[in-house]
Amino acid sequence: MKRQQVIIGIVALVLGVLLFATPFMFIGITAVKSAAEASHLGLSLPSKWLFWENFMAVIKARNYMLLLAYFNSTVITVGAISLLAVSAAMIGYVIQRRPSKWNGFIYALILAGLMIPPAVVPTIWLLKELHLFKTLHGMILIQVAYGLSFSVLLFRSFIASIPRDLDEAAIIDGAKPWQVFFKVILPLLKPITITVVLVQSVTIFNDFTNPLYYLPGKDNVTVQLTLYNFQSQFSSQMNLLFMNILLVTIPPLIMFIFFNKQIVKGMTAGAVKG
């Protein structure tokens, strides 16, 4: 490392920390202050660290709403991810392996899913007709529908790198089509499946807009919705609001610490021409 690189590096580090770390410090510090101190919005350290008090206050707020929210968000995320991962892999597999005159049309549909903003009110109407409105399983299905395109594209490009000979060897060995997929192909999709699971679970867990529309009502709150609801309720208790932000930030932080590489890989796929 040259001297110049060290100097620029130090300058970049200082700037980087200033710009990108201070907001999180601010969140963390405000979350452990008293309400009065928090309202000053400063970066000064709290005179008394009230982590536990604030933590319990947020948890207990509105009759333990945050715990319910965590439960709901977890159910939605896990449910949607399990459905998405397997079925998106199946779709990616068939459209990659089976060239047909329909492919152009199927691609157009997939790209539409990436690009077109969902038509919300007609969706609400439809969910009501199907008795899925304001239900967790309805929300799960919505997340599957909205996350499908991205997942299929990731699987498809990964499957393109698995030689077709493997499918054929399995067919010769007497495998039925579903056995070829589940016994030979699916086990080979582990790396990309991990990526899809991570990226989609962060997306679904952090989703605010869709639960806002499709999952109104106290019983169905998700983590992001509680945050939004607390914003008005805690306007004079900044410390509790920020404790809530802190708690909402923790699951992605944990994911990030353990799976940084795979998440980055999934999110940057496509940079290298895909």
């Binding site: 068939v94 919300v120 439809l126 299905l141 499908l148």
Partner: peptide, 19 residues
């Protein structure tokens, strides 16, 4: 193989978009 989530996509994304 496309059916399981393709159907979900059709009903919950494409149908609302078109209607």
């Amino acid at each position: 193989f496309i059916l399981p989530s393709g159907l979900i996509y059709l009903v919950l994304f494409l149908v609302p978009t078109v209607t």
